[in-house]
């Protein structure tokens, strides 16, 4: 007890040097180097070599610089994959955000049962993706799916959701929107809770209607949370692979192929793997994700500073 005071003053920050902190960081840093950086470097190396199955095992493929990238970008499959990725991502974001926001505003009104019902909305987000994807596959099945049987009951023609090129992207889009709604709901709901209720009360006293208050108070004050939600959603949607692969394998043809499924298809989808081009597509996807990732971090930094 008597030795305590001469160790450090009570107002001083941590007494030991900042370098000892690295003892605690070492496992993480080693982990990141071994299991993030190294696989990514292997991937980069794959994309710069001309691989065959044999050279892949023996690790002696010739170095071809950017040939794989050139081949990938100039291939006929590139434009559709990029376009599908854009459409899939943009529409997913618009609908996930729109529906998530509407539900967040609705649940924010605190009616009876609002808390357990809101909790139930989380279920789709927690399910394994293969569970959601296979359930949607069966619901959208051309002959026996429940969606088509509802359509025919209302006199509409059945739709080949998963097997026709016009509808396959729409089918995976619907499933992906369904999965993404809970995430948007939770983030936007927590954003709504941080808006002081007295602002709404004051505006209501001044005669502002519900609609006006939503556009003049809720939306502007929700902007930071909206930005983060949309950017995170964007980065996550670019990554989506499981749902599309399980439901359509990117088909028929390449009608629902995105960069993510195309990369996988090149690398693992056939008996004759093309690791080089597959890795090249993957690295292009990383570049796109990182671009928006850096924007995300900058937005977040600015909000923390504000």
């Amino acid at each position: 007890m008597t030795t305590a005071p001469n160790r450090s003053g009570p107002r001083r920050r941590w007494p030991s040097p900042r370098t000892t902190a690295w003892g605690f960081l070492a496992p993480l840093v080693v982990y990141l180097v071994a299991f993030y950086l190294y696989p990514l470097l292997r991937n980069l190396d794959l994309s710069l070599r001309d691989h065959t199955v044999r050279s892949f095992v023996r690790n002696d493929a010739p170095f071809v610089w950017l040939d794989n990238y050139v081949r990938v970008v100039t291939s006929a499959a590139f434009a559709p994959a990029l376009w599908n990725t854009l459409v899939f991502t943009a529409l997913s974001l618009v609908f996930q955000y729109g529906i998530g926001l509407a539900l967040a505003v609705f649940f924010h009104q605190h009616f009876r049962l609002s808390v357990p019902l809101r909790a139930l909305f989380l279920v789709p987000w927690l399910l394994p993706l293969i569970v959601s994807a296979s359930t949607w596959s069966w619901m959208l099945n051309s002959e026996s799916g429940v969606v088509n049987s509802v359509l025919t009951a209302f006199g509409a023609d059945p739709v080949n959701w998963l097997t026709s090129p016009q509808y396959s992207l729409l089918a995976v889009l619907v499933a992906n929107i369904w999965i993404g709604i809970p995430f948007n709901l939770v983030l936007l709901y927590s954003g709504l809770r941080n808006i002081p209720p007295r602002l709404h009360e004051a505006a209501a006293l001044d005669g502002a209607g519900g609609w006006q208050r939503f556009w003049r108070i809720t939306m502007p004050l929700l902007r930071p949370v909206s930005a983060i939600t949309l950017l995170l959603g964007l980065v996550y949607t670019l990554k989506v692979f499981d749902i599309i692969w399980i439901m359509t394998q990117g088909g028929p043809g390449n009608s629902s192929t995105t960069l993510a499924t195309w990369s996988y298809e090149l690398g693992f989808g056939s008996l004759l793997p093309r690791f080089g081009p597959g890795a090249a597509v993957g690295n292009l996807l990383i570049l796109i994700a990182l671009f928006f990732g850096v924007i995300h971090i900058r937005v977040q930094r600015r909000q923390e500073a504000a």
Partner: peptide, 18 residues
């Protein structure tokens, strides 16, 4: 933050090779 944004299939390809 950045590491969370790397698509899983790309990690999978790297891990496969490793």
């Amino acid at each position: 933050v950045i590491a969370q944004m790397i698509p899983g299939i790309i990690m999978a390809m790297g891990f496969y090779s490793l």
